[in-house]
Design a protein around this nucleic acid. Structure first.
Lengths: 355, 355
DNA sequence: ACTTTATATGTAAGCGCTTACAAAATGAAG
DNA sequence: CTTCATTTTGTAAGCGCTTACATATAAAGT
């Protein structure tokens, strides 16, 4: 069933059918009803390709994220998909892993499908001098379609960012810990993303503001497990895989550093925090009395563990909503849309801290 | 930049360019290199629409799942996407929620984009007499593209299923519990899916085989929270939302039924199991001695909680791989592809059981 | 050198749709 | 009953690509 069949059946030209389908006002009510009836009856659906050829839009957006099996990103993608669907858009998903090359490749592929916009989820960009080249391809992509970052930050024409104020989140937690008399707060991190750097800044600022010394040995870096080889992990079958690994690895590393002293932990994500909790259990430390722990992202892990984890909520849903609102404006041809949007994070107090 | 430009720049016809792009063998090595060089230099990407018009394929598959923020499905989708990407396919994601109407709508939309195949993740189909109509639309969809179910089961032309043997998984766990002297095993479930029914069968068979009585009061149903209104949950902001709810709700319900006696729990998913763990904690029951608990899906929750949860691994990755292998065969035009594939589940022993 | 056969390239006809433009129908005004 | 303005419909030219078929070129056999 194509437009010609419909035209023939309803005794009009294909142009008229096309007008009806696209809701053009230049059709008489009578013919419109006639054509509509035929369409209904014959279950005709316009061919996207042909349509796309003409309009060059497919009402589809691309979503790119390093790993959809990560809770945080799943939450974001889930939300994005639902909302966009309400506006009649479909989403093509690309999980690029953390490798830059893979990400570029994915981006190119998505663009080749003529998506109307591109959303990147997750704090993609590592620190260090490589920032430059890592973001360059994004600017390139932004020449073709508007690009939206959820919890990432890149400046550029046609690039729009929504991100949680992780600096403030980390600041608040650190300050609260200090106020409860904690002297040695361990900063636990496993990546060098923009977001992680912001957290470090918040942490250090809080210490400085309180007149506490900033100790290098308390910045504890945990090499991300299996990172970079994420693409090959397809055939590995230990299911909670990386997550399980992260938690246990964190515990082991903390146990291994016997001389390191700390009375509290600020972890850049909940897996690390749960790892710290497991460490406390192994050492027989009471939580939160002997060791306070705070995580980040307020993921479901926070309510699974025991005691339940205090965590910072970075408000993904709001970030997504912001991005979408602005995307609709941009796709609508509106100019001077705000490019930069920061939303405050808030602490969700549970049982691993005494504030 | 279109195919004409490339043709002009490399001094050949568009047909030759097309052949190069599509890897046809009927091009001499020399011209191929020449064209490839031009393509590389000019960053040409074929227009999907035009291509689709000719081939009527977009090298894209549709993935439909009730909720991507659910760990199990996220794992599946993540894996599917990675693998399909290796074969040059992109994935359009649809999260339909659990409402039948929404699912149908999504399916229709995906089909209108001329996907090459449709994958449904998750045990979609509820029990009861509604099965019939609920699966009918799938058979309808299967007339247009091959349909693959991951952990779901529907018979029909052009429908291919891969599912874990949840009956056997439940049987094994139940048997192991019985063997450790457990007399009253609580069967905890929160949905009526095909998979849940299989688990119940496994549970009852194990009891029967061991000569234990099957007690109706030990089949404990927990109304799924917020189900059906999943679409509206977009604007709700309590982040671990449903998950947090599930866990606490389970604990509360168990606490509320003070007269119900049981010495062990078999939960149909890990959230319920963690809820049972929280219940044990609230009651001061030692785990696994006074209360043994086993979950299902071996999700990351299993390693977050304390003590760590024994859970059944339903082998999602393998299910996905099976589905994909068969999909590639089907798309390749192969006939008599196996439609039905069941893979055994295995117990991952941790600390909440003493077997 | 002259067929015969295999290989490489080009030509042109769609694929199903949109839309500018032309043509026809309708209606109002003279 | 014209005439002109207005509304409705049709015609046809693409959109960028694939591919059957025709043609040209090269390789091999005699």
């Amino acid at each position: 069933m194509n437009i010609y069949d419909i035209a023939k059946l309803s005794g009009v030209s294909i142009a008229t059918v096309s007008r009806v389908v696209n809701g053009s006002p230049r059709v008489s009510e009578k013919t419109k009803q006639k054509v509509l009836a035929v369409i209904e009856e014959s279950e005709y659906t316009p061919n996207v390709f042909a349509r796309g050829l003409g309009l060059n839009s497919m009402k589809t957006i691309g979503i790119l994220c390093p790993d959809i099996s990560d809770q945080y990103m799943a939450e974001a993608v889930s939300h994005l998909e639902k909302r966009m669907h309400q506006y009649g858009y479909d989403c093509i998903l690309g999980c690029s892993g953390s490798r830059q090359a893979a990400r570029e490749h994915h981006t190119r592929l998505l663009l080749s499908k003529r998506i109307d916009a591109l959303i990147l989820v997750g704090s993609l960009f590592a620190g260090s001098g490589k920032d430059q080249e890592e973001t360059e391809y994004l600017r390139e992509a932004a020449k073709q379609v508007p690009v939206f970052l959820i919890n990432g930050y890149v400046e550029g024409e046609n690039i729009y960012c929504s991100y949680g104020d992780d600096c403030q989140g980390a600041y608040d937690v650190t300050k609260a810990l200090i106020r409860r008399g904690k002297k040695r707060i361990l900063f636990l991190y496993d990546s060098q993303t923009y977001s992680a750097r912001q957290k470090l800044i918040g942490y250090e600022t809080a210490l400085a503001d309180a007149g506490c010394p900033i100790r290098g040995e308390l910045k504890f870096y945990l090499r991300p497990l299996g990172s970079g080889s994420m693409e090959e992990s397809c055939f590995v079958d230990s299911v909670p895989g990386t997550m399980q690994g992260k938690i246990h690895y964190t515990r082991e590393m903390l146990l291994a550093h016997r001389t390191l002293e700390f009375d509290s932990v600020f972890a850049c994500n909940d897996s690390l925090a749960v790892g710290a909790l497991k460490y406390a259990l192994a050492k027989g430390l009471s939580v939160p009395e002997e060791l306070s722990v705070a995580g980040y992202n307020n993921s479901m892990m926070a309510v699974c563990c025991e005691p339940e984890l205090t965590s910072v909520d970075n408000q993904v849903k709001q970030l997504c909503n912001d991005a979408i609102d602005r995307m609709l404006e941009v796709l609508d041809g509106k100019t001077d849309v705000e490019q930069d949007h920061k939303v405050p994070c808030r602490i969700v107090k549970r049982c691993t801290t005494d504030f």
